[in-house]
Write a protein that binds this DNA or RNA. Structure first.
Lengths: 106, 106
DNA sequence: TTTATATGAAACCTTTTGGTGTTATGTCAA
DNA sequence: TTGACATAACACCAAAAGGTTTCATATAAA
């Protein structure tokens, strides 16, 4: 059944729009928690929870700098999700090729 | 913020392992509801709910054939998710290129 | 050393999610 | 037409998700 279980924490992390926004945000550069939270309407603890889930999914890392915690994107893990999806791209191509064959035979 | 909203229903649909298993299953061929349900330990109504969410995400279509409802994968929508992820692949490549430049200068 | 700042952690609330069992409906087959 | 079958549609439940407020702690800055 492919590597569904490996991709699990990543897909869970990406399922929420706030978390995807954070990922996009961190693509432009690392940022501390409060700094990220200031971009959203929700409270800082709520954003901190999202960051924890992204961390569980292996999508971001945290570096403690004094009283700040710098969040940094690790895009590698996104590949696990991309790989899973790409598997079906290939399937789709095969299907189209088969269909083409059938059509051309007639 | 990229096309996060477009990808929303797809990511939501893929967030659950059962639904990803169904997607993988339908990649091998279309199947009716009960047939799909027989592969899982949960009840048929539970599977039917998952199918409904996959339908909302535009990942599968249903064709009514007599008293059966044939579920068929539409992998196109998976591209919305793949596109989103690919954006960060590009970003990562750029980062690596920049890093390489810096390293090589020294 | 006092005060302000950045954050985590805990307790709590509400809504959604993933399940169940039951009942109703349309369709196939004897 | 009668009975079995494939499903949808409910009503319902427990757990997880997403949020809030409050409080504690460590660090920076006055």
């Amino acid at each position: 059944m492919i590597q569904t279980d490996q991709a699990q924490p990543v897909f869970r992390a990406l399922a929420d729009p706030t978390r995807r926004a954070i990922v996009a945000m961190l693509a432009d550069g690392e940022r501390p928690v409060g700094d990220i939270a200031s971009e959203f309407q929700m409270t800082r603890p709520a954003v901190a929870k999202h960051l924890a889930i992204l961390r569980e999914g292996g999508l971001i890392s945290v570096e403690i700098q004094g009283r700040e915690r710098i969040n940094r994107l690790i895009p590698d893990r996104l590949k696990a999700a991309a790989d899973w999806i790409n598997h079906f791209d290939r399937f789709w191509d095969e299907r189209l090729a088969k269909l083409k064959q059938i059509v051309e035979k007639e």
